Amino acid sequence: MASDVPTLAYKVLTADQMTALEAEGSFAGAPVDVADGYVHLSTADQLTETVDKHFAGQSDLHVAAVDLDALGDAVKWEESRGGALFPHLYAALPLDAVVAYGPLERGDDGKVRLPVAG
């Protein structure tokens, strides 16, 4: 892939899914991930639209920043919404590839704030 490919992607999780990831050390995916055969991730630029489209009206959500380099060949960039390339993880998401996470918050502009490693 080109050098302008992001090295971080983001996974939106419910509170229960975040708790499971922390407790079990990996996350096999939400029901939609399991059905599609991969864990859906979004780039920073795609994250707010993903939340607005797929998590509208839900509360107590969390965002995990994922180091794509740590996942190696399990990540495939594939066309999705509007022909845009999205990172899809063809494996369980390991906690050790999560570099930051926290509750989903929005800035004054309405965009989802990215979790920052502490």
Rank of each mutant, 00 (worst) to 15 (best):
G37K: 12
E78S: 09
F27I: 01
A15S: 15
A56F: 10
P94D: 05
H62M: 07
D69A: 14
Q58H: 12
E105G: 06
D73R: 06
A100T: 03
H88I: 00
P6Q: 05
L71Y: 06
V39F: 00
D4F: 12
H54K: 07
D69F: 04
S59V: 15
D52N: 15
A91M: 01
A56R: 14
L61M: 12
A2C: 02
A28F: 03
G118E: 14
T43W: 08
H40T: 11
L8A: 05
E79N: 10
A20E: 12
A23G: 09
A44M: 01
V39A: 01
S59R: 15
A74Y: 07
T50Q: 09
A28H: 11
D60G: 13
S26C: 11
P103E: 15
V98N: 03
E49I: 02
S42G: 07
D96N: 14
D60A: 15
A84S: 05
D33H: 06
A117I: 02
L85T: 03
E78G: 04
E105R: 14
V112I: 10
G107H: 09
T48R: 03
L21E: 07
L104K: 08
D109F: 13
V98R: 00
V51D: 00
A74L: 05
D33P: 08
G83E: 08
V99F: 08
K53D: 05
A15V: 08
T48C: 06
D45N: 08
Y101C: 02
V5L: 14
G107M: 08
G102I: 06
A74K: 12
P31D: 09
G25S: 11
V75A: 02
Q46M: 07
D36R: 15
A9Q: 04
A35Y: 11
G102L: 09
S80F: 13
E24W: 13
V98Q: 03
V66D: 00
A23K: 15
D108T: 14
V39P: 00
D96C: 04
T48F: 05
L104H: 04
L61A: 07
E24P: 03
L85A: 14
F86N: 04
T14N: 08
G37H: 09
L21W: 05
F55P: 00
Q17K: 07
L85W: 06
A91N: 02
F27H: 15
F27K: 00
E24K: 15
A56V: 09
P94Q: 10
D67Q: 05
D45V: 05
R106N: 09
Q17Y: 07
Q58P: 01
A70W: 04
Y90L: 06
S3M: 13
E79M: 09
V99M: 07
P94N: 08
V112G: 00
S3L: 10
A84L: 13
A65N: 02
M1T: 10
A74T: 09
D73G: 04
K11G: 00
R106W: 11
S42Q: 02
R113D: 06
K11R: 15
D52M: 03
M18P: 00
D16R: 13
L89E: 00
E49Q: 12
